[in-house]
Design a protein around this nucleic acid. Sequence first.
RNA 1: GGGGAGAUUCCAGAGCGGCCAAAUGGGGCAGACUGUAAAUCUGUUGUCUUUCGACUUCGGAGGUUCGAAUCCUCCUCUCCCCA
Length: 430
Amino acid sequence: MNFVEELQWRGMIHDIMPGTEEHLNKEMTTAYVGIDPTADSLHIGHLVGVMMLKHLQQAGHRPVVLVGGATGMIGDPSMKSAERNLLDEPTLRHNQESIKKQLMRFLDFNSGEANSAVMVNNYDWMKDFSFLDFIRDVGKYITVNYMMSKDSVKKRLSSESRDGMSFTEFTYQLVQGYDYLHLYKELDCKLQMGGSDQWGNITTGTELIRKTVGGEAYALVCPLITKADGGKFGKTESGNIWLDAAKTTPYQFYQFWLNTSDQDAEKYIKIFTLLNKQEIETLVKEQVEAPHLRPLQNRLANEMTILVHGQEALETSIEASQILFGRGSTQTLKKMDEPTFLSVFEGVPIFTIEKVALQEGVNIVDLLAEKSSVFPSKGELRRTIAGGGLQLNKEKIDNGDRLVGMGDLLNDKYLLVQKGKKSFYLLIAE
RNA sequence: GGGGAGAUUCCAGAGCGGCCAAAUGGGGCAGACUGUAAAUCUGUUGUCUUUCGACUUCGGAGGUUCGAAUCCUCCUCUCCCCA
């Protein structure tokens, strides 16, 4: 199975330029994906592009990761409906380093082979490019008419858009197009990949290559990852799902994948894991036969957690999940020794309170909304209690007057607060 | 430079000077049902208060008025059209 076929059955091809597959079959091809260094960690939205590069490398081609130091300073109009904040250079450099470390879990940068992965930063060649040089050497080849016909631009110029588009943003596709030209010349890069929203930007690049050096370059984009319910992929109420354990704990990461809806699970497992076609088909069959066991979600969560955080983190996450969602009760919680307890609740938001306050017993509303900030307001807490959504140490609280005292402490130190089904908070009395 | 439209709560978007903490939809949160899924139904969604109620909010600053999201003045910002 070649690279294109591989992506095909995984549902990772949205659009591909004619001739791309032929070229890939003909020779080892260098291809790149751009990543914006807007943060010092990748989030799971980035993984689609990363997985494309992974498959590419496995097929014997050379992956290039382009960190958009320059383009990240501009902001891609197709990404957002509004103008973006600009980043400064030290931040960009720091972010690039962190991102590379994460990418090394996926791509081989030091294989010594011809298809060893490469990372470049377009800031390096854009920073000294003068405005005059740019408009003469690049701008000259592309007409404004062509640029305006791109969807990303049209959308922003239409009257539905609430904001205008700055010249800076308008220029974005030219800068990205020039990146492609630069890599074409320097690294013999003949393929650019990305999300389908990048199609317009990528084709500006191929157009530029054709017009300036008469070269042939290709494009391949994957569909935008969506959720069946129309929500945005990779977001939870607390924001992005990051690869960095400090931003998103392994437990939360694991839970994210486990919570995937049935409709999405098959799609995600194809895109994000390296399981082969047969393995996935088997899992799908199991899912149909025993949907309550959720074989797809379980496998997906396992694979992803191992890939990003390692085996040990996976085991802790599973253990924590079983205690929190399984038949955990006040008794099981009390029986746990402290190290186990702490490892299970690693990553759960922690609040500290004064132990003294508990000696006389304290009203639960005051405890959670005043003595600690588990809840932002008393009103919200009362509503949650009234709706039966609050548990203390796995025991339902149905009265806002409930007094919490020393006897409620687990291991003489902890209180486990649960809001709804999935949100846990840990109180430490000191 | 000229003309027009606009800024309301998480978002979108209503809002005769009092009945406006502000319609409606979306989103969020919670409950029921379930499989930590989806769909559906219910509740809730400024702060404080057990209740009554009190207080702070409608771009900013002033003003008119017994009373302002609503009227007036100035300012800031945004969009559109013409030149």
